[in-house]
């Protein structure tokens, strides 16, 4: 039983860490977006307002995948271990193994 709980906790932590690899994507994407916006403002300083608004919108949308990963990681750390351990204990009470 202790071994099973240990494996659950360790795998949840590993899974959370692996999920956050998705943070690379939004990082690169938002970097590209901001770089292009800076170029655009440098070329046409008068269009600063419109470019900034569009860039922030784009950044927010690019961020979504990263936030999915974050939500999954937080669920894996704070919610999943309890749930899995409860399921395990219930299974043991029922005599499944």
């Amino acid at each position: 039983m202790e071994l099973a709980i240990g494996i659950i906790l360790g795998c949840c932590a590993l899974g959370a860490g692996i999920a956050m690899i998705a943070g690379i994507g939004p990082g690169i994407g938002e970097g590209n977006a901001v770089a292009s916006a800076c170029e655009a403002i440098g070329r046409q300083p008068e269009s600063k307002g419109a470019v900034t608004t569009t860039m922030i919108m784009g950044c927010a949308i690019a961020e979504t995948t990263g936030l999915y990963a974050l939500v999954i990681a937080i669920l894996l750390i704070f919610v999943a271990p309890n749930t899995f351990v409860n399921v395990l204990q219930k299974a043991k009470e029922l005599g499944l193994f």
């Binding site: 927010a60 961020e63 979504t64 936030l67 999915y68 974050l70 939500v71 937080i74």
Partner: peptide, 16 residues
């Protein structure tokens, strides 16, 4: 789903 998760994820990650 993406609208809800974007807003919720941003605010909750900040508090965490």
């Amino acid at each position: 789903v993406s609208m809800a998760f974007r807003h919720y994820g941003n605010i909750m990650s900040g508090s965490v």
